[in-house]
Amino acid sequence: MTTPTSQTVYTESDIINVATEAGRLLLLGGAESFRIEETVEHIGKSLGLPLTCYVTMTAVVVSANNGVQTKLVKARISGFNLQTVDRVNSLSRDLVAGTISPDAFYVAIDDLKQRVVDFPLAVKVLSAGLVAMAPSLIGQGTGLDFVLMFFAGIIGYLCYVMTDRYSKTPYAPEFIGGFGIGLFVLMSHSLLSGSSSLSIILGAVMPLVPGLAMTNAIREIIMGDVLSGLVRSINALLVVSSLVTGVWLALEIVNFV
């Protein structure tokens, strides 16, 4: 897509292109379907071409209301990146309010497409350790267990991120993450006899389990996006299954050997 210079009259395909791109960025960032549809339609309205948008979990369809053009892009969701969502949201809000020009909006969306804003990996891994010390497990573990949960969570998330980086196989990252957790828990169990394996495993999988995805899926079903809600909940189920398989395989292999 070429970026139009100022004083250009935007063609319909330009507007559809940029709106679709904004929608795709929102979908990749993990925004809810109804929010994406709303944002894309507002962008279209403020650029002067009323649009209709339909989003499923894997695709964005944007169609002009006068029925001439339609664009469909496919996307593949992997996790959350809410900073992108925030940027696109505030850009589109500025556009609707009229504080930035359509030109600046085009440039900013293009720029956002190329650059991924992210926390450093070390910070994310450490915070995975913090998430792993789940407050709901209070009373089910000693202080030592919580320390072990911290490290198990770090190991699991690290395995997850590394596999995600080098492998394209679906659900492999969760599987390897669960496998790493299983191995670590077994090792700690044999070294420190006082630790309770089950609650450590339950804590360590907290950064990886899609509890939030399940809750969001039900929210989407309530909001009327039944299709995308169902797809999300099935995806969540598969993610949990692959985690369980990973942990279970680690336990079985060690038992077997």
């Binding site: 993990g30 996790g79 959350f80 990146n81 809410l82 900073q83 925030d86 804003v117 992210d118 926390f119 910070v123 994310k124 450490l126 915070s127 995975a128 350790g129 913090l130 998430v131 010390m133 789940a134 407050p135 709901s136 209070i138 919580f146 998330y157 907290m206 950064p207 939030l212």
Partner: peptide, 20 residues
């Protein structure tokens, strides 16, 4: 203790999900 852990969990998961 669990309230303190809840604080850590909330902030930690926000960082994993990459919120601003």
């Amino acid at each position: 203790f669990s309230t303190f852990l809840a604080l850590l969990s909330s902030i930690g998961f926000s960082i994993i999900a990459n919120v601003p």
